[in-house]
Write a protein that binds this DNA or RNA. Structure first.
Lengths: 167, 167
DNA sequence: GGCACCATACTCGGATATAAACTGTCCGAGTCCCTAGGG
DNA sequence: CCCTAGGGACTCGGACAGTTTATATCCGAGTATGGTGCC
């Protein structure tokens, strides 16, 4: 009743970030199937698979079909930013898309691109740029190091967790 | 096919911002009906009314029923930030809502609030804070002044536009 | 014993249903204005 | 001529459908593997 509508980010973003972070703790070349990744957090496997495919198309993950196949990081953790992952899932477009409302109002609008000149559009774009900059400043390697510092047992738990899971 | 899903802001936000900005150019105490505000940009009147009500609930607009009624700004333009308007339409919650995925993974999670401690959640929250800070730094008065400087004829056009419209 | 071939089981990949949210619309409650009647 | 009461019209406000988007699922195409038969 009070909040008419809420802008929200797909929950798939959180899934993707956690799974990518988990993949940083595997041995180089080792792959994990979508089924195991899903089981790790009790997520719906088929739907998580969809997100993983989006990450693969974006060049963040590599996929191998067949037995002993699965997903692994396509680049070093230092070269994958949080922004990369978010953009892969949420799409490259910005949250605010100027409809050029001003053009539909009175006055002369000959050859003016209000997506660039409209001061409201500029404000929204500047804010979104600040958001992107923050996310682009953090890499998977940063997250990895932070977690390892706070709780050194996590890497081992994750590796053993994947190995132990029965699919 | 390529972009699975896109985080997008409601178009109502753009409507609300433009209409609020237009209201800054009215004489103090003067009110404009939802029908006229809609006609100004050729928007669906009943749906715009919905957004205006949200702005009224948030204390940004004041509404007067009956003849000669309508909407007007409830505060001075200097005291209304772009963030206020966005929050009124999109809701006060953040776009990224931590589901505490980690809690569903292996390990001990006794009495830990991962919405605060999870490094991924922290990163997303920090980015969203930067976004909010940018939007909170711009007021309707700032937008008003920018537009008037670039195009001094706009205020008069808006006033005359509202007066001329036949509903 | 070594090698090549084949059947098999396992994996990803995209096409397909279901649920939720946004968008759009309608009609009723409340309020102000204008008019008409009376003092 | 002024005041007052009533009717009417106009406005917002919240409740009600239609359409797009996100969520969840299933089955088929492709590949490495392991076994088997042949040389």
């Amino acid at each position: 009743m009070f909040s008419i509508q809420i802008m929200r980010m797909s929950e798939g973003v959180e899934w993707a970030l956690h799974e990518c972070l988990n993949l940083t703790w595997l041995e180089p070349g080792e792959a994990v199937t979508a089924a195991r990744l899903a089981k790790f957090y009790e997520l719906p496997a088929a739907y998580l698979n969809k997100q993983l495919q989006a990450l693969a198309r974006a060049g963040i993950l590599e996929s191998t079909p067949g037995p002993r196949g699965g997903f692994r990081l396509a680049r070093r953790p230092e070269d994958i930013t949080v922004m990369d992952v978010v953009a892969a899932i949420e799409g490259p477009e910005s949250a605010f898309r100027c409809q050029e409302l001003v053009r539909r109002g009175p006055g002369d609008h000959e050859g003016v691109d209000y997506r660039k000149t409209c001061s409201i559009s500029q404000t929204m774009r500047r804010a979104e740029l600040a958001w992107r900059r923050e996310l682009a400043a953090v890499t998977l390697a940063d997250l990895k190091e932070t977690v390892e510092t706070r709780n050194p047992t996590v890497p081992g738990e994750v590796r053993r967790g994947f190995a132990r899971l029965k699919v």
